[in-house]
Design a protein around this nucleic acid. Structure first.
Lengths: 115, 115
DNA sequence: GGCATGTGTCAGCTTTTCTTGACGCGTGCC
DNA sequence: GGCACGCGTCAAGAAAAGCTGACACATGCC
């Protein structure tokens, strides 16, 4: 696996987060849309037909999983705009890779704490 | 992708189903447990510490996604036992593969109908 | 018969996720 | 000022997923 060393999270927990991030038709579409080229929130909302608050939430889920990144930029006419783009992630899902990741899964059913 | 032709489901919808099936710590553990060797429900329940009704539900979710298969067999002492084993699935998750699958996703937010 | 083991299902509760419709803030332009 | 366009957040409802404790059936064994 190839993640930043700084983020202290087991591979198992990370995989689960990625799976959770991708487990949604809207979020799949968002990733697809950003694959072609980066975009800012309001425009992405228009193009995908997703309401802005909703899109905002989905983007955060994707960003939390490390699948997209965002940067705040100022346009020529002085407006603050948040641009999103996909990270070049690669995840291989096989019984073995899952078995491996599962070894480093935190306790049972508990959801990951955002402390 | 390498699925059965008989199941009429788009790649996009199928991918979503697989992601949904794997998006759960219990189900990841179940896949891991079955990777080593096949097992029957009650024993798997004991070994994983998951209640039988719950395990039953998780197994069905995995089976519906095609990640595990089951066969009903009769043990020497005449008991009917359902054995589960993993299928040798391989899924590659990248922005491009997702963009591709997304093209064949059924309409927007609607959940897949089981008609 | 009573008990252990296996199978499966159902109702009902709790928790999480999804979604919408307000709000708030800022800027530039006519 | 009023409008259009960016940004973000909050409360609250609707829908889905997760989980538990019954209950049903079957078999073999003492």
């Amino acid at each position: 696996m190839s993640r930043n060393d700084a983020d202290a999270e087991s591979d198992g927990d990370h995989l689960l987060k990625v799976l959770g991030a991708l487990n949604n038709p809207h979020r799949l579409r968002i990733v697809a849309a950003l694959t072609h080229d980066r975009n800012y929130v309001s425009r992405l909302a228009r193009e995908t037909g997703i309401s802005r608050p909703l899109l905002h939430m989905h983007l955060q889920r994707l960003e939390a999983a490390g699948l997209v990144t965002s940067t705040l930029e100022l346009s020529d006419d002085g407006k603050a705009m948040r641009f999103y783009e996909v990270t070049p992630f690669v995840y291989q899902l096989t019984p073995d890779s899952i078995a491996l990741a599962t070894e480093t899964l935190s306790r049972s059913g508990q959801r990951e704490e955002t402390r």
